[in-house]
């Protein structure tokens, strides 16, 4: 393990009571300062993985190191160095945004400035509002604020923008980019592939408890998955061909007369992802 690896996972396995194998051996590392996205369908094992790394669940097999510590035995000093934004968490509904953040900031040795954190998540106008009176999206921003107020070296974000409107999502991305610039390492799970494409340096795709792809966002699935597709219709039958030289193919087709319903498709992250998940399920 290199000194710069903040997270290291080797052969990680998890079998739940009752025999369900949630993780069947997963390997990946996250370097310091990197933003890493875990992608995958519901029930694939994303949350199991992140909860093992957060110390909430015990693994059945394999190795896990988070900031050099086995998360199963992470003490208070270790917890002070990580920040966690869970999928759903209870807020103290009777505290105001500012009270809640001030209280949590006080638990950490080197917290961020509370007012700056409130401003960063866009809740300055709601700072003195009790959390029970906030909208769902605003409460989610309180969750994010609580995750970063301790000034963590490593931030876990489990589906952080669920329930955000497009504008809130964009300002959240801006916040994550600023954390990244300050050197925070981030592990993100998300359903939104555009979010992963916007934020992550690298991503892993989990399906059926296995890592089916791992790499830089723009290399995920390998070069083959990115070969453009030319699709057209011939006598009512849809034809398609993958080629590195779509222009040539289109010219050849056009020479025989205008092809019906011609299109050239460059697979987007979403197409590649869906292919990967489909292959894993097959």
């Amino acid at each position: 393990m290199s000194m710069d690896d903040v997270v290291e996972v080797r052969g990680l396995r998890k079998t739940y009571r009752g025999g369900f194998e949630a993780l069947k051996g997963i390997d990946f590392t996250i370097e310091r300062g990197e933003t890493f996205a875990l992608l995958g369908p519901n029930g694939a094992g994303k949350s199991t993985t992140i909860e093992i790394l957060e110390g909430y669940r015990d693994r059945t097999g394999g190795e896990a190191r988070v900031l050099g510590v086995d998360p199963q035995h992470g003490g208070l000093g270790w917890k002070a160095r990580i920040g966690i934004v869970l999928q759903n968490t209870g807020e103290q509904p009777n505290a105001t945004v500012r009270e809640q953040l001030t209280h949590f900031a006080g638990l950490y040795p080197r917290p961020r400035d509370v007012d700056k954190v409130i401003a960063a998540v866009g809740l300055t106008d709601q700072a003195r509002t009790r959390i029970r009176r906030l909208s769902g999206g605003q409460r989610r921003r309180v969750d994010v604020a609580l995750g970063i107020v301790g000034n963590p070296e490593l931030l876990f974000l489990d589906e952080p923008t669920t329930g955000f409107d497009p504008e809130a999502r964009r300002s959240f991305w801006e916040l994550i980019r600023s954390l990244k610039r300050e050197g925070t390492t981030i592990l993100l799970t998300t359903h939104y592939l555009d979010e992963a494409a916007q934020l992550a340096d690298r991503a892993g795709v989990i399906a059926g408890g296995r890592l089916v792809a791992l790499g830089a966002i723009d290399e995920l699935g390998g070069a083959d998955a990115r070969v453009p597709i030319v699709r057209w219709s011939e006598k009512g039958v849809v034809r398609e061909e993958r080629t590195q030289r779509p222009g040539e193919l289109v010219a050849r087709l056009a020479a025989k007369g205008e092809p019906e319903r011609l299109e050239v498709i460059r697979p987007a992250l979403e197409d590649i992802y869906l292919d990967l998940v489909r292959e894993a399920a097959a």
Partner: peptide, 17 residues
């Protein structure tokens, strides 16, 4: 209530003893 609404889970992830 705090156990089931996730308050304790959140606290478990902080350096609160």
């Amino acid at each position: 209530v705090e156990k089931s609404d996730g308050t304790l889970k959140r606290l478990a992830g902080t350096p609160l003893s």
